[in-house]
Design a binder for these strands. Structure first.
Length: 601
DNA sequence: AGGATTCAG
DNA sequence: TGTTCTGAATCCT
């Protein structure tokens, strides 16, 4: 049987091995020798992580927003720079930070879109996130255009088939395999049965899992493309770091699998790699390392030996924990989990005044009004994606001009609890936003006054930030707070209220509503509709109302109930207030890899 | 809690 | 290549 296994898997060891150029598997190179130390543990780890990032995201969004631009050169402008462009534009030689002028020279027929309003990008980003969330509960946002997906469980489920003695999995990877130069496509199919699996070493098992993960990755990217119209590139490996590092190896619209063998690690993380190329080592750490004369991963690794001479010098700039993680990253070891991203916890807007600083109370007041408007717009966008949430905190921060005597620029921040305030929905006239804007600006100015009691001052940055609370708790207080007896709130009223938002004084602790009479039968339908609009299933809403009598108690019961209300493994499902979002809760996890996995008897 | 730093896109 | 703005995490007090 061992011979059989050998025959089936030989081509992985040969054809998958990295080209001879990097040492033929010999461990003579220092980087490869170090990689040999970390490789076994990486291969034994069973995680499968995808790093998916959208190709030239903003430009693609503009092509979707303006379909007639599809395939024509498109640039996205912020301030006076073209921050990104699609591949048609890049074909004319347009680079990332080119000025508007340069871009016009290189490509006169280009269409320039204004990319300062991120609202639309944010909504497409969320849709892509939602697609990925159908495959795994562990999806982590990284900016607007990237996600990490942990598909370990899904992969493990597929391999459970091997518990059946007669079963056989047919496996092939999809896309590229770093660092092999070959056509993108599918690797040779490998067949593995139960007995084979037992004989396989860690490297082969790891490859098998990642091959399956690569097929899942292709499915997710395909869904994002067909349902949203976004192409993406991706990396597949055993950690976020490694997946991310190979995700951009082949672009656009391609994916790359990275199997962490010693030789491949040596290739991906050579000794002479500049430290700032390692994800996780950022600007500040790079500066400190440079001051210590350390510029490459190899230099980090030789310096970070606890007994060595250089270690003491490193400790002057970093703590021991930071050094450990830095060392691990340079070895390609990253145990950080994929953290399921939920709705954003904060929302902030900021204006800067570098050339014309803000010097008077009147100017502050005007600029705070402008910021308040931006803030309302952003909160509205947040509501569309995540539903209504309370806003318990509000803060203003600012940066002064550097003091004239050469001192550093002072920063300031003042936060207030909105304990006596809450965001409430009011039967909405259209003019409400203007009042809200004024109220926010008033609060902000109050904070500003505490921070800067009097003129003169010279400000370069003003920033407003709100902090969100839990969604459903909010819905309860929002809709059934002290002033509104729950049983009298109809779904129609709720709908009307959804049009407006107002910052109002809250006059109580929210308990008064609970003492009102329970809903009577004629109002039951409205109460059910209310609960449904909050994302609960209709039948469960009815049960809860029968048992509890009124809406607030029903909400509490449904929340406490756990698994039968929104499944825990689907992020955001619980914050949705719209039936449409509710739908995806019942969306089944897609069958993975039907094309390449067959159960044979 | 909230202030400062850090990292990332 | 770097800058600006936004969001999250972590450490420190």
């Amino acid at each position: 049987m061992a011979a059989e296994t050998e025959r089936r898997w030989r081509n992985i060891l040969t054809s998958q091995m990295i080209p001879e150029a990097c040492g033929e598997g010999k461990l003579s190179e220092p980087s490869t020798a170090r990689a040999a130390a970390s490789s076994p543990e990486l291969l034994a780890a069973s995680r499968c992580i995808l790093a998916i990032d959208m190709d030239c995201f903003y430009a693609q969004c503009e092509e979707i927003r303006h379909p007639h631009l599809k395939g024509r050169p498109v640039g996205v402008q912020q301030k006076m720079l073209v921050i990104t462009s699609n591949y048609a534009a890049r074909a004319c030689g347009i680079k990332k930070g080119d000025s508007l002028q340069v871009v016009r020279e290189k490509c006169p027929e280009i269409t320039i879109c204004n990319g300062e309003d991120l609202t639309f990008y944010g909504e497409l980003s969320q849709r892509a996130f939602d697609v990925a969330a159908r495959w795994s509960s562990k999806v982590e946002k990284l900016g607007l255009d990237e996600v990490f997906v942990d598909v370990t469980e899904l992969v493990a489920e597929r391999f459970k088939a091997l518990e059946d003695p007669g079963a056989c999995l047919r496996l092939a990877s999809t896309g590229h395999e770093y660092p092999k130069e070959s056509e993108s496509g599918r690797s040779e199919v490998q067949e593995v049965g139960q007995a084979d699996w037992k004989d396989l070493d860690d490297a082969h098992r790891c490859w098998a899992r990642l091959a399956l993960a690569s097929e899942i990755c292709r499915e997710i990217r395909e869904a994002i493309l067909s349902e949203i119209g976004l192409t993406s590139s991706a990396g597949i490996s055993v950690s976020k770091q490694l997946a991310k590092m190979v995700s951009s190896w082949k672009k656009p619209s391609q994916q790359t699998l990275f199997l962490p063998t010693a030789d491949r690690l040596g290739h991906l993380l050579p000794d002479d790699l500049a430290v700032q190329k390692v994800p996780g080592i950022g600007f500040a750490s790079t500066q400190k390392l440079h001051e210590l004369g350390v510029r490459t991963t190899g230099e980090v690794l030789s310096a970070v030996v606890p007994e060595g001479e250089e270690y003491g010098r490193l400790l002057t700039e970093f703590d021991a924990g930071a050094l450990r993680t830095m060392k691990a990253l340079c070895l390609g070891i990253d145990a950080s989990p994929v953290k399921a991203s939920g709705a954003p916890k904060t929302c902030s807007v900021q204006d800067s005044f570098w050339q014309g600083p803000v010097r008077t109370d009147v100017q502050v007041r005007d600029n705070l009004l402008a910021l308040a408007q931006k803030l309302i717009t952003k909160i509205r966008s947040d509501e569309r994606m995540y539903g209504y949430r309370p806003i318990p905190t509000f803060s203003l921060s600012l940066m002064h001009a550097p003091s004239s005597d050469g001192g550093a620029a002072r920063k300031g921040r003042k936060q207030m609890q909105l304990g006596s305030f809450q965001i409430a929905r009011q039967p909405g006239e259209q003019g409400d936003d203007e009042r809200l804007q004024g109220q926010i600006a008033d609060r902000a100015f109050g904070l500003f006054r505490k921070l800067v009691p009097e003129e003169p001052f010279v400000l370069h940055i003003l920033n407003l930030q709100v902090g969100f609370g839990e969604a459903l708790g909010a819905q309860r207080r929002l809709s059934f707070g002290a002033s509104a007896p729950s049983a009298t709130v109809s779904a129609a009223q709720l709908q009307a209220q959804a049009e407006g938002i107002e910052l109002t004084d809250s006059d109580g602790d929210g308990e008064a509503g609970r003492n009102k009479t329970p809903a009577v039968s004629t109002e039951r339908a409205d109460a059910v509709a209310t609960l449904v609009s909050m994302g609960f299933a209709q039948d469960r809403a009815q049960q809860a109302l029968v048992q509890c009598g009124d809406v607030p108690r029903a909400v509490e019961m449904l929340l406490a109930d756990g698994p039968s209300s929104p499944p825990a493994h689907l992020p955001h499902g619980d914050v949705s207030s719209r039936a449409e979002k509710r739908q995806r809760l019942s969306c089944p996890v897609p069958e993975a890899s039907g094309a390449i996995i067959d159960l044979l008897d």
